[in-house]
Structure formats: structure tokens, C-alpha cells
């Protein structure tokens, strides 16, 4: 006895295409606006300005050494002729991360507040993470055509689970005494969420966002197969022509972008580090010193 699940999925996709076209168009329009807006802004920024922004961010959040690495690495990207491809990829990553956060943060909060919601959402997240990414490229292309929009949507599906999971986990792990303190002083449910739970879950949530960014970066390369564009095209060209050199150049550019994004977003969950800390040490450390002697 055989089940033809594939036929069922085909029928479901066709049904959605026939009956929900306006909804699909609306989603496409919204995501298209976000993606194209970010892309236009990044591509309109001249290379030296863009490079300067990255270097300053590195200097502020990480430190002098990393800022030097960023400058050298992006200079290399530019001289490989891949600057605009990298910016296109970055815009896809930023757009899909933004959408993943807009959907994922509330979902994670809902999971933390209700065991029932968590029980339903968790297997869906497992499915999203383990289903081979190529599989949902097909319906994404059928629903939204080719280009950046289906690329973004496929990326969102693939990269959203960490931010949902770690938001849920972060909120659930907030120390029970903080929750008791919040309640004892008369917090309403939203006050408890925004004044006690979310601030204390922030390191975990930031780790989730970092993971989402990393996953979306790996996905946008695959999404180039449905015309998402960016650095994925370079890699894809390398594969199609069996051109090792081109493929390697694309790969290096992806790695550079990944390292820069990873280090900068990781630092967002922590204390301000790097050069600023050195410069402002006297000011921020002063109260600590006075307490130690008191």
C-alpha cells in the first residue's frame, strides 16, 4: 500500500495558488518593498562610505584589531569586483532577518507564555529547520515567481527557528525571583513582559538573532537558484561552469561577510566593548572603584 503524499502537496499548492492569489500578491508586495528598499539604499551607498561604516561599527562594538581586519577584508572584496554582489546579499540577509524577527519574536513570546502554543510550534520549527532547503524553494518560486522576494521568503523560513526558540528559552529562563518581584510590586502582564522578562532574556534573544543572521546568510546563497541574486550568483556561476576560481572568490566573499556580521551582532548582546570601552573606561569604572573602597 502506498500513500501519494506528493500528490496531496501538489494539490494544496495549486489550491493556494488558485484561491489566495491576492494574499500572496500582498505578501510579495510588502516583502518586495522591504527587500528592494534596503537593497536600493545599500547599492546607492558609495563603496568608501559603506566600508567606513563597517569599519566604524567594528571599532565601536568589537575593537581595533577587528576593525583592521574588516577594512582589509572589504578592500579585498572590492578588488575581487564583488562589492555590489556582497551588498545585494547583505540586503537580502537584513530583509529576511527583519521579517524573521517581526514574526519570530512575538511567536517566541507566545511560546514562553503558553505550554500549549509551545507544544504546537516546536514540531513546526523542527520541520522548518530540517526540511532540505531546496524543497521549499520550489513552492516559494511557484507562489512568488523568481527574484528577491521568494528568495527572502525561503530564507525567512529557513532562518527563523533560532530566534523563536531562543526567545522562548530566554524568557522561560528568567530567574523566578525576578518574576516574583515583578508580580509582588504590581506588574500587569505586559509590564512584566517588557520590564522584567524581555530585558533579562536579552542575551539569549540576541544569540537567537545572531544565529538567524548566520543561517540566512547560508540560505541566500542557495536562494540564488531562484534568482535571488547577490553573491550566490557568483557561486552558482562557478558551479555551473566548473570554474573553481570564480566559485572560490564567491565563497571567500561569503565568509568575510559572515565573519563581520557574526562578530558585530554577537557584541550587541554584551556590554559595549572595544575601543569605546578603552576611551570611556575612566567614566564607567569610577563608581565601581568608589564602592570597592567604601
Amino acid at each position: 500500500m502506498t500513500f501519494d503524499i506528493g500528490d496531496g502537496v501538489d494539490n494544496a499548492v495549486n489550491y493556494i495558488l488558485d484561491n489566495f492569489a491576492p494574499l500572496l500578491d500582498f505578501i510579495a508586495a510588502v516583502i518586495g518593498a522591504v527587500t528592494n528598499g534596503i537593497q536600493a539604499a545599500l547599492l546607492a551607498t558609495p563603496m568608501p562610505v559603506g566600508l567606513a561604516i563597517f569599519v566604524l561599527l567594528s571599532l565601536w562594538r568589537v575593537g581595533f584589531g577587528f576593525a583592521a581586519f574588516t577594512a582589509a577584508a572589504l578592500w579585498l572584496v572590492d578588488h575581487m569586483g564583488l562589492w555590489s554582489a556582497v551588498m545585494e546579499t547583505l540586503s537580502l540577509v537584513l530583509a529576511s532577518t527583519l521579517v524573521a524577527m517581526l514574526v519570530g519574536l512575538p511567536l517566541g513570546i507566545a511560546m514562553a507564555r503558553s505550554d500549549r502554543v509551545a507544544a504546537v510550534v516546536r514540531p513546526v520549527l523542527d520541520l522548518m529547520q530540517t526540511m532540505p532547503a531546496f524543497v521549499y524553494l520550489i513552492p516559494a518560486a511557484m507562489f512568488f515567481g523568481l527574484g528577491a522576494v521568494p528568495g527572502t521568503i525561503a530564507t525567512v523560513i529557513f532562518s527563523m527557528p533560532p530566534v523563536v526558540r531562543l526567545t522562548n528559552l530566554g524568557i522561560r529562563q528568567v530567574h523566578v525571583e525576578y518574576i516574583e518581584a515583578g508580580n509582588a510590586f504590581g506588574c500587569t502582564a505586559p509590564q512584566l513582559l517588557f520590564k522584567v522578562q524581555l530585558p533579562n532574556a536579552m542575551p539569549s534573544i540576541m544569540a537567537g538573532i545572531n544565529q538567524t543572521i548566520m543561517l540566512s546568510l547560508s540560505m541566500v546563497v542557495i536562494a540564488s537558484m531562484i534568482g535571488a541574486g547577490g553573491i550566490g550568483n557568483t557561486v552558482l556561476t562557478g558551479i555551473q561552469r566548473l570554474d573553481v576560481g570564480t566559485g572560490f572568490e564567491g565563497g571567500i566573499a561569503v565568509v568575510i561577510l559572515a565573519v563581520i556580521l557574526d562578530r558585530i551582532t554577537q557584541s550587541l548582546g554584551k556590554e559595549r566593548a572595544g575601543l569605546w570601552r578603552t576611551v570611556f573606561r575612566t567614566r564607567t569604572q569610577a563608581p565601581a572603584a568608589s564602592i570597592a573602597t567604601a
Binding site: E177, F185, G186, K195, M202
Partner: peptide, 28 residues
């Protein structure tokens, strides 16, 4: 009632780590 009449002090303090001393004291 909790805001006006009853408050509480905890064994392990339960001060919110994301707040300064004065913002903790002003929490209620």
C-alpha cells in the same frame, strides 16, 4: 493592592540586573 499596600523583600534580593540602583528602588 500590591502597588499601594503590600511590598516584598526577597532572600536573594531579586534586584533587576538591567537597572541601576535608583531605577530598582523606583521600580514599584
Amino acid at each position: 493592592l500590591r502597588r499601594r499596600d503590600i511590598s516584598m523583600v526577597f532572600q536573594s534580593f531579586a534586584l533587576l540586573p538591567n537597572r541601576t540602583v535608583i531605577d530598582n528602588a523606583a521600580f514599584g
